[in-house]
């Protein structure tokens, strides 16, 4: 059928990123920390941009976050997400020193402001992929 809806984009984990996705599947948000200088980095990649060490350890994030910015998607750029419009994508600061982008759940975009505290949760995307989400802080 020519108008069949394609699947949602799925990550294709590499050796550099696989621990992150395995963590998310287990409802744990794992971040890379340089095993030499201690700098936390995200998104996962091979090299520490501060000290150029390849040595890495994975730490579990606290689950806390605060709003850095956001957008509310109204136009269906990808047909797989059309049925979910409008939805809110939040960019949030994590206290570990990195940022993350995820859907906002459990509240509307009207109350968003820079610095608003959120907490990280997890949910299935409807196609068997677990993704992190942001929920209102308790």
């Amino acid at each position: 059928m020519s108008d069949a809806i394609p699947p949602k984009p799925r990550p294709e984990p590499s050796d550099d990123t696989r621990p992150y996705w395995e963590g998310v599947a287990a409802h744990r948000l794992l971040l890379q920390r340089c095993a030499d200088c201690g700098r936390v980095r995200h998104y996962p990649r091979p090299l520490c941009d501060a000290c150029h060490s390849f040595a890495v350890e994975w730490i579990e994030a606290s689950g806390r976050a605060s709003v850095h910015s956001w957008t509310v998607a109204h136009h269906p750029f990808h047909p797989a997400f059309k049925a979910e419009l409008p939805y809110t994508l939040v960019t949030a600061d994590l206290p570990e020193g990195v940022r993350m982008l995820a859907r906002l759940r459990g509240m509307g975009p009207e109350a968003l402001r820079v610095g608003l505290p959120l907490r990280i949760g997890f949910e299935d995307n409807g196609e068997g992929l677990t993704l992190p989400v942001f929920r209102p802080a308790d």
Partner: peptide
Amino acid sequence: LVGEFEAPHGANAPAQ
């Protein structure tokens, strides 16, 4: 990178 870590959330175009 955005393809792996942002597109699955529904961020798929420059406007987004």
